Structures are given as structure tokens and as C-alpha cells.
Simulated scan of single mutants.
Amino acid sequence: MWRLKIAEGGNNPYLYSTNNFVGRQTWEFDPNYGTAEEREEVEQARLHFWNHRHQVKPTSDVLWRMQFLREKQFKQTIPQADDGHWPAENAGLLYFMPPLVICLYITGHLNSVFSAEHRKETLRYLYCHQVIKNEDGGWGLHIEGDSTMFCTTLSYICMRLLGEGPDGGLDGACTKARKWILDHGTATANPSWGKTWLSVLGVSEWGGSNPMPPEFWIIPSFMPIHPGINSLDS
């Protein structure tokens, strides 16, 4: 089972801290943690969630989340961690994980950092948000967003780097994602961030990425020259 470790670094050579890991939260998979009954209960809960994904209505799901957070806020039931900080999850944005996988891949550390369970959970996360929110086969900028070329391209690449074939993935996830990309202008329709990551991975020439000084990121996003504008000419 997965265990949440608070303010611990262990002997992991990839974790470094200047404050003794205060505020650090990491998930560690331990196949022998918990009793056999507890492990079976967790596995059944995971299967139950996936098997009922089509029955989740976005409206009711959003309302449930709002009610959950409201109760946590007003009842102050969010527990404080042992090291004094209040844990929080930052999993809404869908362009965090793919770049990490890309970096680990190009540096040759993907297999040593990502265990089989890390791959399994990362892929499951991608499958869930492709099917529950975006049945068109793509991914949005966040878990409630409509499909975008940026995150669909990154998620497709992430699945392939984690071992899925061109037509692999649960319920044809890769096939659906590739079709969305081709139907919406191909990967060349990516905004600047997307093109940059394609170039970092080595599947696109750097000449296709516009040089962009960092000052441009502070301009309003609605302006045509903003790097995030989804355009074939960007």
C-alpha cells in the first residue's frame, strides 16, 4: 500500500533538503504495509472507483467537493502534520507530471525513480481524468478543464514514455488522445510551453519554438502575443 511520509527524507539520493525536510510530503509504496485484509480493502476501493467512473456526474461531483472543502474549512478538521505544517494537495493542474516524466526519461533515471507502482498510479490518474471529464479523448489544463492541445500532447507523451504502445492504454487511451491531437491541428498547434517540452524531449526542432523573454509571461493572457495562446503561428 501507499504510505504518506511527512518530513522524512530517508536514504533517497534524489531528495535533498536544507531544512531537515520540514513540510516535505512524499508517497512511498510498501507492498507489505498493512494487513492482508487492509490491502484487499484498498484494492477493492480503487477498483470500485474506476468501475463506476462513467456514473460520476460533473455537476454532482463538483458540488460534493465544494461541500467537502466547506466542512473542512468551517469545522477546522484538517489535521496538522507532526512537523507543524498543514498538508495540502496540489493535484488539480495536469501539466505537472508529464514534464517530470520527460526529465527523468532524458536523464536516464526514469526506471530507477519510478517503480512499477509509480507507473501504475500515474497511468491510472491519466486514464481517470481522460474518461471522467473529457470523453473526447483529451486533457485540459486542470482536472475540470476542457481539452487543450498543450496537456493532451504532454499526457500522450507521458503515457508512451511509461510504456504504453501507440494504441495502448486503458480503453484505447493512446488512440483516443492521438486522434484528438490530429483532429485539432496536430502537435504543431501547441503553445510555447508545449513546443518547448517537445524540443527538450528531442521530438521537435528548437527552430519551431519562438524565443520568448521571461518578461512576456507577465502580460495579460488575452493578448495575442501571450505565449499561452493556442495558435498554429505561436
Rank of each mutant, 00 (worst) to 15 (best):
17 S>F: 09
76 Q>T: 04
28 E>C: 02
104 L>E: 03
27 W>Q: 00
17 S>R: 05
58 P>E: 05
46 R>D: 00
66 M>E: 13
38 E>C: 05
87 P>L: 05
14 Y>N: 08
30 D>N: 14
42 V>F: 10
52 H>E: 13
92 G>R: 13
53 R>K: 10
50 W>N: 01
74 F>G: 02
106 I>A: 04
94 L>T: 10
104 L>D: 02
59 T>D: 13
41 E>W: 14
31 P>Q: 06
30 D>S: 11
23 G>Y: 00
103 C>E: 11
50 W>V: 11
60 S>K: 15
38 E>G: 07
15 L>R: 03
17 S>T: 11
55 Q>A: 13
33 Y>W: 11
25 Q>A: 02
42 V>P: 02
48 H>T: 08
86 W>Y: 13
89 E>P: 00
51 N>Q: 14
56 V>N: 06
57 K>F: 05
72 K>F: 06
35 T>I: 04
75 K>V: 05
91 A>K: 06
56 V>Q: 04
105 Y>I: 00
78 I>L: 15
66 M>H: 08
88 A>G: 05
69 L>R: 07
21 F>S: 03
40 E>I: 03
48 H>L: 08
64 W>Y: 15
33 Y>P: 04
70 R>L: 09
80 Q>G: 03
82 D>S: 15
104 L>S: 10
33 Y>G: 02
44 Q>A: 10
19 N>Y: 07
95 Y>Q: 03
106 I>G: 01
71 E>N: 09
101 V>N: 01
36 A>N: 15
26 T>H: 08
83 D>W: 15
78 I>Y: 04
49 F>K: 05
89 E>V: 06
80 Q>F: 01
82 D>L: 08
41 E>V: 06
65 R>Y: 12
60 S>P: 02
63 L>Q: 12
24 R>E: 13
57 K>H: 15
106 I>V: 15
16 Y>A: 04
20 N>D: 15
27 W>G: 03
58 P>S: 10
89 E>Y: 14
43 E>I: 02
58 P>F: 11
59 T>N: 12
15 L>D: 08
15 L>H: 10
85 H>L: 05
69 L>A: 14
44 Q>I: 00
46 R>S: 02
13 P>A: 01
101 V>D: 00
56 V>A: 14
67 Q>L: 13
53 R>E: 04
90 N>W: 14
